[in-house]
Design a protein around this nucleic acid. Structure first.
Length: 301
DNA sequence: TACACGTGGAA
DNA sequence: TTTCCAAGTGT
C-alpha cells in the first residue's frame, strides 16, 4: 500500500519491517543520544567489530561527553584510551576533529554533511552515517554491509568489489527512499541486515526478509567470480611491528628507551633488521609517537 | 586505483 | 592452525 503510493524500491518496506523487529539494542542507537557520541561510535566501528567497541565507547562518552572535553585532552591520553581497538590514527583524528569542532563550530558537531565530511577522519561513509543516524537526514549510507546486501539482492553477486565503485554508489542513491525519515530507517535497516543475516561468510538466507526478491538466490547462490577478494597480510608487516610498539607505549606513562622498544618488537618478529626503526620513524611521522631529546619515546603530549 | 593502516575472534 | 573478516579513511 505505502510502496504503491511512494514508489519505493520493493526491498525497502520488508527491510524496514525486519529491522523494527530484529534490531540490536545498541547504546548509540538509544533515543536522544547526541551526535557527538554517535560520531564516536561510527569512528570506533570503522573496521572494528561491535562487541569490541561497546566497552570503550561507554568509557569515552562518560569521560569526554563533548567535543570540548576531548579537545582539552592530550593526544597521548586519547590514544591510550583507544586501547586495543586498532588503527590508533582514528583516535588521533577524532582528537583533531574535536579541536576543529571547538575552533570552528562553537563546540557543536555540525549538522551539515559537507562540514562533517571536512572533519579529520570523517569520510564519505561516516559523514553520511552521522547525518542520517544523528540528524535524520537523507543520505546514501554505504558501508561494507550495505554493499554486500546490494551485491546479492540487486546485482546477484556473492560479494561486492574490493573497492567502492561509482556503479555501487549510483545504485545506493537509486534505492534511497524520497522521504528522509524513511530513508534513514532504510539506511540503518540494510546495514543491520548485512551485519546479522546477509553476512560475508555464511549468510542466513532462511532468516532473510527479502530472500524472495534476492537476485543472488534466484541465480542459485553462485560462488564469487571476478578479481580475488583482497586479503590482509599480517605476519612480518609494518602494521604488526607498529602495533607492538604502540602497545608498549600505551602500557606505561614513563617514556621508553630504544632498548625497551626493542624488547617490544624483538628481532625475531622483524622482516628485516631496520624494520623497527623504520616503523618507529613512521609512527613519529604520523604523530602517534613523540620522540624526546634524551632519545626516549612516549605517546604525544 | 590500489595500498597501508591494528586487533582479535570465529570458522 | 590458518584464513577470513569487522559500521573506512587518506594518500
Amino acid at each position: 500500500m505505502r510502496q504503491q503510493t511512494t514508489g519505493e524500491h520493493p526491498l525497502v518496506e520488508p527491510v524496514i519491517a525486519w529491522y523494527d523487529a530484529n534490531a540490536r539494542d545498541l547504546p548509540w542507537r538509544a533515543p536522544g543520544v547526541p551526535a557527538w557520541p554517535v560520531l564516536i561510535s561510527e569512528v570506533m566501528l570503522q573496521q572494528t567489530p561491535v562487541n569490541r567497541v561497546l566497552p570503550v565507547w561507554r568509557e569515552w562518552v562518560e569521560r569526554w561527553p563533548t567535543p570540548a572535553a576531548l579537545a582539552a585532552e592530550t593526544p597521548g591520553e586519547v590514544i591510550r584510551a583507544w586501547g586495543r581497538l586498532g588503527y590508533p590514527r582514528r583516535a588521533l583524528r577524532l582528537h583533531e576533529a574535536a579541536g576543529v569542532i571547538v575552533e570552528r563550530h562553537g563546540g557543536e558537531l555540525p549538522t551539515d554533511h559537507a562540514q562533517l565530511l571536512a572533519l579529520p577522519g570523517i569520510g564519505t561513509y561516516t559523514a553520511a552515517a552521522v547525518a542520517t543516524f544523528a540528524y535524520g537526514q537523507r543520505h546514501a549510507v554505504v558501508d561494507v554491509n550495505v554493499r554486500r546486501v546490494h551485491a546479492r539482492a540487486v546485482t546477484g553477486d556473492a560479494h561486492p568489489q574490493n573497492n567502492l565503485s561509482a556503479a555501487e554508489s549510483a545504485l545506493a542513491q537509486r534505492l534511497l527512499p524520497e522521504h528522509p525519515r524513511t530513508a534513514a530507517r532504510w539506511a540503518i535497516g540494510v546495514m543491520e541486515l548485512g551485519a546479522l543475516v546477509c553476512t560475508a561468510r555464511t549468510p542466513r538466507c532462511g532468516d532473510c526478509p527479502v530472500e524472495h526478491l534476492c537476485a543472488w538466490r534466484a541465480a542459485g547462490s553462485p560462488a564469487h567470480d571476478g578479481p580475488p577478494r583482497r586479503g590482509q597480510a599480517w605476519a612480518g608487516t609494518d602494521r604488526q611491528v607498529r602495533g607492538k610498539l604502540m602497545a608498549a607505549l600505551r602500557a606505561t606513562r614513563t617514556p621508553l628507551t630504544a632498548a625497551q622498544l626493542r624488547e617490544a618488537a624483538p628481532d625475531d618478529v622483524l622482516k628485516d633488521p631496520r624494520q623497527r626503526e623504520r616503523c618507529l620513524a613512521g609512527l613519529v611521522e604520523d604523530g602517534l609517537v613523540e620522540p624526546l631529546p634524551d632519545d626516549r619515546y612516549r605517546l604525544p603530549h
